[in-house]
């Protein structure tokens, strides 16, 4: 489980790009790709090594005022966990 005060950034092997064919972002890494929904893409963009996990949750919650904060928190943590399992996250800038 990722620590709340960790400052995640995308591993150098992962590249985020917008896929105009499907109208969504994709995270590309060797031999693979993940199609990201808008929220996942926003989280990936915030993973620069500068913000803590808590700060990423705060920023997303502020953008989605209509969504309960616990829900946003759960989604962010679940997505970061998926990235970590695939070796796509590093810590620090």
């Amino acid at each position: 489980m990722i620590a709340r005060d960790a400052r995640p950034r995308l591993a150098s092997k992962a590249r985020l790009r917008f896929d105009r064919h499907e109208g969504q972002h994709m995270l590309i890494y060797p031999e693979k790709g993940m199609a990201l929904n808008a929220t996942a893409a926003a989280v990936a963009e915030l993973c620069t090594g500068e913000r803590t996990v808590d700060e990423i949750v705060e920023q997303l919650a502020a953008r989605h005022a209509a969504t309960p904060r616990e829900r946003v928190e759960h989604d962010v943590l679940a997505f970061l966990e998926q990235l970590a399992l695939r070796g796509l996250l590093r810590e620090g800038a």
């Binding site: 499907e22 790709g33 199609a35 929904n37 989280v43 997505f79």
Partner: peptide, 19 residues
Amino acid sequence: MSAAGQAGSSRDAYRPYTL
């Protein structure tokens, strides 16, 4: 956020992802 499917669940049944 059911963040992400593996790319490959494309709407286009025959979209090449890799050259």
